[in-house]
Design a binder for these strands. Structure first.
Length: 590
RNA sequence: GCUGGUGUGGCUCAGUCGGUAGAGCAGCUGAUUCGUAAUCAGCAGGUCAGCGGUUCGAAUCCGCUCACCAGCUCCA
């Protein structure tokens, strides 16, 4: 604790530097305890740091306290961090017994400065910067040990990664650890199951969640909302099959790019027989609608939308709650337009997305990512460098016109074009794409989609692949985490819980419930065996927007006592309550 | 797919050295009718994820499979 006599020193380093230095201290401690350890890399990251090791023994969570204790000794020594550089030959000699460091040096450009940091008897190849001495480290904690591939390449060796975090003060550290615990309580995978939004069974299989009545209700509400809004914005609803012959996927090249990720029906190796595959995306199905007859430039833009169930055979370790699953429902759509219309249509897509995010209350939680191709990894993409550069410039231009705050990411594009990805983090801090808008300059030609332009020439249109609210299951997961299960009134599976204080009030409550339902509200009255609503558990009640309490007082005065999630609203008539609730639902209040 | 962890009634968990399963909550029955979750009494509920092996004997030991969790890789 800080006292007036020992004011908290203003550190001349930032948190990232402190954490990076702490990772060095951890590496030194590991090396003391496991002298044969080979070191990989140990950067600071959001909220902490990690270091990757190649060890003979498998570390366990139980081994972390010993490492922390060893770190404490190093910190007590107040070792200085001193920087020095070496010529390449000497640098290589210095790390001769550290193969991963040798590889790192060999991959650095010939003219790169090779800097090292020495701290006690521990020296590490490192660009820095660092704190002045280990005594600065006051508050740290090792969190977990997991596997991680060397250089993030699944073909390379899996190393052992220790995650940790560090803060300037112990209070800040404790606050962070508490926040991590709190975040876990919002985990959709926990509360979604507890509150019975979804479940899984081993007999149905991995990545195949079962949406229970509450989950199914929310998805239905979202779907109606999306389809209605899209209709207002000029979209044409389609409903296309859930599977197709592989020939379709061969044209789109999905068969080449993602065959392992598709559920194939039939012998995929047999080129003679008829083979089907469940659809992993909607594009070529919806394209068939466009292709049904000759199109004119006067028809464009054509905006197609569909609530599409998709199937992807994700690898076993990749499934996660409702966020990553093998069957999911996407608010999918494709806009076919002329080159001149691309910008307007793209802006319209983003406006729709932002409208959705605003309505759901997620706008402040997302970031925008401009996902580009990787020109060094061309086999992942179709089309020429020229076409890629042109289309990416087109999208960047649109984004800059919009003054959108975005980050650029290489190698994150779809194989047919660049994307604007709307990213959101889950409670574990892991980021996922929840919504995407993509510009495709390739598939129209592959599917021979054309329009007759004003000059009488047949031309290939641009196609915008877009979602408006994303994958319904994933969006539900994010909503559950955002609201800790207490969804906004308009989305709540149960909007009103009616609580009869005694059996005397029970009949009256049934009548109230009937009236509320007639007004379109979703009501729950716990009336099993004529028992009183008292039994509605607090754990559930706290998630329900409104609870109506009815006892003698209310029945005599023809009122209900209204308790909202944020406090008591007092007594009012049922009509007053209903009018208020219906208004709030119409406004989609949060 | 890879690394590690987990898997006991609907839920949360206990089960010592292998001797053949226990609690609370939920459920059901009855009593209670109580102003904002856990009133009282009783009842019922488990092939200890599944399969195979070791053993006289396995929830406990070994192997395989399945599912769940965290991380890595992947994500049209």
């Amino acid at each position: 604790m800080n006292t007036p006599d020992s004011p908290r020193p203003v550190p001349e380093f930032d948190l990232q530097t402190l954490r990076h230095s702490t990772s060095h201290v951890m590496a030194a401690a590991v090396l003391r305890l496991y002298p044969t350890a080979k070191l990989a890399i140990g950067p600071a990251i959001d909220n902490g740091f990690y270091y990757d090791f190649d060890l003979d023994t498998q570390l366990k969570q139980e081994d972390l306290p010993a490492i922390e204790a060893e770190m404490k000794k190093i910190i007590k020594e107040r070792f200085a961090f001193t920087r020095f550089t070496l010529p390449r030959a000497e640098a290589l000699a210095a790390v001769a017994d550290q193969p991963y460091k040798v590889e790192l040096i060999n991959d650095l450009p010939a003219d790169a400065e090779l800097s090292f940091y020495k701290m006690g008897d521990f020296t590490d190849l490192c660009a820095g910067p660092h704190i002045d001495h280990t005594g600065r480290i006051k508050a740290y904690k090792l969190l977990s040990v997991t596997g991680a591939y060397w250089r993030g390449d699944s073909n390379k060796k899996m190393l052992q990664r220790i995650y940790g975090t560090a803060f300037v003060t112990k209070d800040e550290l404790q606050a962070h650890l508490t926040a991590l615990e709190e975040a876990k309580k919002r985990d959709h995978n926990k509360i979604g199951r507890e509150l019975e939004y979804f479940t899984t069974t081993e007999y149905i299989g991995q990545g195949l969640p079962i949406l229970m009545p509450k989950g199914a209700k929310v998805l239905q509400l979202l779907q109606r909302f999306v389809e209605d809004e899209e209709e207002r914005r000029g979209y044409l609803l389609t409903k296309t099959p859930s599977l197709a012959k592989r020939d379709l996927y061969k044209i789109s090249t999905h068969w080449d790019h993602y065959r392992d990720g598709m559920f194939v029906i039939g012998d995929a190796e047999d080129e003679e027989s008829e083979v089907f595959a469940l659809r992993p995306m909607t594009c070529p199905f919806q394209f068939q609608v466009y292709l049904a007859r000759m199109r004119s430039y006067r028809d464009l833009p054509m905006r197609f939308n569909e609530t599409a169930t998709l199937f992807r055979n994700e690898s076993s370790g990749e499934m996660h709650g409702l966020i990553r699953v093998r069957q999911f429902t996407l608010s999918e759509g494709h806009i076919v337009c002329t080159p001149e219309q691309v910008e307007n249509e793209f802006v319209g897509c983003l406006d729709l997305v932002n409208f959705m995010l605003d309505t759901l209350g997620l706008r402040e939680d997302v970031t925008y990512r401009f996902s580009k191709w990787d020109e060094n990894n061309r086999e992942k993409y179709i089309g020429s460098a020229d076409e890629w550069n042109r289309t990416q410039a087109l999208m960047k231009n649109i984004l800059d016109h919009l003054k959108l705050d975005y980050v650029e990411a290489d190698g994150e594009a779809a194989f047919y074009g660049p994307k604007l990805d709307i990213q959101m983090k889950n409670v574990h801090g892991k980021e996922d794409t929840i919504i995407t808008i993509q510009i495709d300059f390739q598939l129209a030609a592959r599917f021979e989609m054309e329009y007759v332009d004003a000059d009488g020439q047949r031309k290939h249109p641009y196609i915008i692949h877009r979602s408006s609210i994303g994958c319904y299951e994933r969006t539900l997961a994010m909503l559950l985490e955002k609201y800790a299960g207490a969804l906004p009134l308009w989305l709540a599976p149960t909007q009103v819980a009616v609580l009869a204080l005694t059996d005397r009030h029970h009949e009256y409550c049934r009548e109230l419930t009937r009236q509320l339902q007639a007004a379109g509200l979703r009501v729950e009255l716990d009336d099993r065996n004529e028992k009183i609503g008292y039994k509605i558990r607090e754990a559930q009640v706290s998630k329900v927007p409104y609870m109506l309490i009815v006892g003698d007082k209310e029945q005599e005065t023809n009122t209900v006592s209204v308790r909202a999630r944020d406090g008591d609203k007092g007594a009012m008539t049922l009509q007053e309550f209903t009018a208020m609730a219906v208004q709030q639902i119409q406004n989609k209040e949060r």
